[in-house]
Design a protein around this nucleic acid. Structure first.
Length: 447
DNA sequence: TCTGGGGTCCTAGGACCC
DNA sequence: TCTGGGGTCCTAGGACCC
């Protein structure tokens, strides 16, 4: 049996762990840049606040109902998420971390001789006790059915947040009550398409012919269909696969017209991509920079991107910042109010499997001037030595930043100057990083 | 005035190879 | 006049997830 453990209103629950006054209050957490609502307490949902709504559209409601509003605090949420995983792993050996608030549990990999139901109740209690975060647990034969079971566990008040969906008759009964659009893997497009065939509930899809599903929903839909019938097609992935792309992008705090400010933002995003690459042990072959005005504003819009192929795959901050900056020069047009930019690195390969250039000297920081022809090569010994120097330099930078705080050492190109600060993200309602920063540890007052 | 930020997989079609 | 059969790689677009 497979369990899906899902944290209830996760971001809101994290805020409540260290701020119990928020219990029984309407609470929402906003997206990066404080733009949209991305998490709501049950009280906030009851007020009719929809998921994803822009804050400015519900400003009056928020004020009138005294809704508590927070910027997203990923340092806190990421840390609590990792703690939940640690607690779960004490009882279940095979756990797939699926997202920041969800994990799949392989119930066959436990030492405890209890029923899935009883073990599930215990795990859920333990997570609440050790982390303070309330969860729901659905258990079934496949991931897709575990998702359905989780939904039941979350809605039902009688099952203590745990539901085992195992008997065929009950499965069919619940599928008949589930809109097909609520299934994992059915998005807006497929929901519409299926509706045109008269398929509205999950049971309607379950009752379809295999060939019909294959024809209209490809192999992806067919897997979903099998999973509904209790045949597991989506195995648990215990070790996360290396990433194929890495992206860092942000909406500017205020619209930007100034190239030097945008350049600073791009340098920051490129540095961040380089750090993420090194964290993965990967190097990138391509780097893309994109820049765009706001889709939501009337009038002429502009967006563009430019991609470099690197001479030798790299994760060196200096090199990626250099190319990103040159890419920005190629797409920047004067006179537009830009709202967003970003950097994407792709063509990722493991660092030690990188292909050196035929004529490059192997020194990944010694990028050639793009306007100049590539220099001819040097001896193999020099290649290896200079390469190791670079790797070590970046390792030291990462080590210092890990120890003394993010951004303690950075490239001059990504330093913020007073005039260009406007690109930085709005985060006006950030709670403290209670669990990851010594100066922000909560203080208990006893009297 | 103000609208997030990440990712993955699959398919079809074009270009090319022998 | 008659014109095969087997591949690979790449990209764009479409779908989905949190």
């Amino acid at each position: 049996m497979i369990g899906l453990l899902d944290s209830n209103n996760f971001y809101v629950s994290c805020e409540r762990v260290f701020n119990p006054k928020l219990e029984r209050q309407p609470v929402v957490v906003l997206s990066n840049g404080d733009g949209c609502v991305v998490a709501r307490s049950n009280e906030a949902k009851a007020l009719g606040i929809p998921m994803g709504v822009p804050v400015f559209q519900i400003k009056h409601l928020l004020r009138h109902e005294k809704v508590k509003v927070f910027s997203s605090n990923y340092a806190l949420y990421g840390d609590l998420s990792a703690r939940i995983t640690n607690v779960v792993r004490q009882d279940i050996a095979d756990v797939e971390v699926y997202s920041i608030d969800e994990q799949f549990l392989d119930f066959s990999t436990t030492r405890h001789p209890q029923s899935a139901d009883q073990l599930g109740v215990n795990i859920r209690k333990k997570v609440k006790q050790c982390t303070g975060v309330p969860t729901s647990l659905g258990i079934a034969k496949t991931k897709t059915l575990a998702k359905v079971a989780n939904h039941i566990a979350k809605k039902s008040l009688v099952h203590e947040g745990v539901y085992v969906l195992d008997r065929e008759q009950i499965i069919e009964e619940f599928l008949s009550l589930t809109p097909v659009a609520d299934l994992w893997g059915i998005g807006r497009r497929y929901a519409k398409k299926l509706s045109s065939f008269g398929i509205h509930t999950a049971l309607d899809l379950y009752d379809c012919k295999e060939a019909f599903v294959k024809k209209h929903m490809t192999i992806v839909g067919l897997r979903l269909w099998y999973e509904l019938h209790g045949v597991s097609c989506l195995p648990l992935e215990m070790v996360s696969k290396p990433k194929k792309n890495i992206c860092t992008s942000r909406t500017f705090g205020k619209a930007q017209m100034n190239l030097s400010a945008i350049k600073e933002a791009v340098a920051n995003h490129a540095s961040s991509c380089a750090e993420k690459l090194r964290g993965e042990g990967s190097v990138a072959n391509y780097i893309q920079v994109f820049l765009a005005t706001s889709r939501h504003r009337p009038g002429e819009q502009y967006s563009n991107s430019f991609t470099w192929t690197l001479p030798v795959a790299s994760s060196d901050s200096r090199e990626l910042v250099h190319y990103a900056s040159q890419a920005l020069d190629r797409i920047f047009r004067k006179g537009y109010q830009y709202s967003k930019c970003g950097v994407i690195v792709s063509g990722l390969v493991p660092r030690d499997a990188r292909q050196l250039g035929l004529f490059s000297d192997g020194n990944s920081s010694g990028y050639h001037d793009i306007s100049q022809p590539i220099r001819s090569g040097q001896s193999g010994q020099v290649q290896r030595d200079s390469l190791q120097e670079d790797v070590r330099l970046m390792e030291v930078v990462d080590m210092i930043n890990h120890r003394y705080g993010r951004g303690k050492i950075q490239l001059g190109a990504s330093m913020t100057t007073v005039e260009t600060r406007g690109w930085q993200m709005q985060q006006n309602r950030l709670s403290p990083r209670y669990t990851t920063c010594f100066s922000e540890i909560p203080i208990a007052k006893c009297s």
